[in-house]
Design a protein around this nucleic acid. Structure first.
Lengths: 198, 198
DNA sequence: TCCTAAGTACACAGACCTGTCTACTTTGGC
DNA sequence: GCCAAAGTAGACAGGTCTGTGTACTTAGGA
């Protein structure tokens, strides 16, 4: 269990160049946007040959999907770790807001990578859209599961309400470059959780 | 007052070609994204010469800003009209959710134009970012003003909470291509307004 | 009627984009 | 040490992008 198979780490062990590509792509896609980041920029930043990118990922679209999958995996790990800090089911539920908070520290915060990708990619068949959608579904399921464990009323509805607050806070925080919307969202979440109390 | 100076209509009267450009740009930017829409596509769609675009707007960046300004103006008009349908201050406040609802009908819904633009444009000095930010500020001020008129507790905080719900609903609705998140957001908003009641 | 501002048509520059090709070099497991 | 897989280097094709230059034509008010 100490040697948990983090897909990114294991890929680094066996394909170091591919890992460098993914790492550079992640940074650049997130910071500058997907359309604004060319493959030449990625390979230059990664210090690898362009052919390495195409041999390992197939093309830019698949690389974008891989970028989001990687981010989703790291997000899940981080969320799990933060949730486990608490015992009380209600606090475990609200810990999700804390997890979001840890991601938006720093002045390089550019909002949610999945929302940004979905905003940027109009094509409904782009492979990255599937990844973004399943990520959001995962977050909502996480919330619903914890809400149910906490014995709250209508856990599914509450989970969606909390998701909306989280999404709104993420988007607003990145527009204003402030983490204050997350505090507001957390306060509103406490109200809604209180209302759903037995 | 019947001859209210809608900037787009007045521009159409005196500069028909410029208006065609703005109208085409609005459609294409919103539907396909800003980066994905080239100026050649816009002028072809508008049926005007490329030079007309540059003479009237200066360049693509300024055209993007004009697109958002136009959308903001139309949004304000629409919001005002919907708000005036109600007498009760609390209902007027919640009518904002209805206004959002009217914008996300139809299968061509692609989310909030301002959020999408901000997601897509990483450059903090881009003229469109200023427009997007001031639009969101306007929405929040509208909410705060109505919350205060309704005599609710801490109208500023409540306004921000409602804004977050609206933003979350917009983003989620466009990802799922469903208007159901808006219903959830409205229900949550009623809870929060209830809590803030006298 | 004339004159100015607005619009047209279209070629062009220069940069950037994704993806492919070929030939060469490194590296890790057997 | 061998050999296959992985990676490298760099040119290249074929597009697309924003923005400019030039010479021409319309339209509307004084």
């Amino acid at each position: 269990m100490t040697e948990k198979d983090n897909s990114r780490a294991s890929a680094a062990r066996k394909r170091p160049a591919a890992e460098k590509v993914l790492s550079s792509a992640s940074d650049l896609f997130y910071r500058n946007g997907i359309a604004a980041t060319g493959v030449d920029t990625i390979v230059e930043h990664a210090g690898v040959a362009k052919r390495t990118l195409y041999n390992n990922f197939g093309g830019k679209d698949e690389l974008v999907a891989a970028y989001l999958r990687d981010r989703d995996a790291r997000w899940r790990t981080s969320l799990e770790e933060i949730t486990e800090r608490y015992e009380d089911p209600k606090e475990r539920l609200l810990a999700t807001f804390e997890a979001y908070g840890e991601w938006l520290v720093g002045d390089d915060y550019r909002g949610c990578a999945f929302i940004n990708a979905a905003s940027e990619i109009a094509d409904p068949d782009h492979p990255a859209r599937t990844v973004a959608l399943s990520h959001k579904k995962g977050v909502q399921e996480h919330l619903a599961s914890l809400a149910a464990q906490a014995g709250l009323h209508e856990p599914e509805t509450l989970a969606e309400e909390l998701l909306l607050l989280l999404e709104g806070a993420t988007v607003t925080a990145s527009m204003r470059k402030s983490h204050e919307p997350l505090d507001t969202a957390r306060a509103a979440a406490r109200s809604l959780v209180g209302r759903s109390h037995t």
